[in-house]
Amino acid sequence: MIRIGVTDLGGARHEVQANAGDRLMEVLREYDWGVAAICGGMCSCATCHVFLEQDWFDRFPEADYDEQDLLDFLDHRAPNSRLSCQLTLEPEHDGLQVTLAPEE
């Protein structure tokens, strides 16, 4: 079981649980306060944008070309931005801290 701390758009903190192999977006879209993830994880819509705390950011594989391209277009993009549909959770991500990005 992987525990994830999430800060939602209102600043409220939540703790959620996931399994190894889950994509972060699929975990987050389950909640009212979660991500919209309209395209269902096709890296097509950028509605699952999150910020990762820096030391966690470095523990995921780098964003590929398509994801970078979408991120480039977001008003709320920050150096620690990722699309959560592109992040696969592994056991070493237990304790991950993420903040949801505002809707564009």
Binding site: C43, S44, A46, D66, D69, L70, D72, F73
Partner: peptide
Amino acid sequence: SPQDYMAGRR
């Protein structure tokens, strides 16, 4: 070409 698509959508 997602970047062009995003620009176009905007």
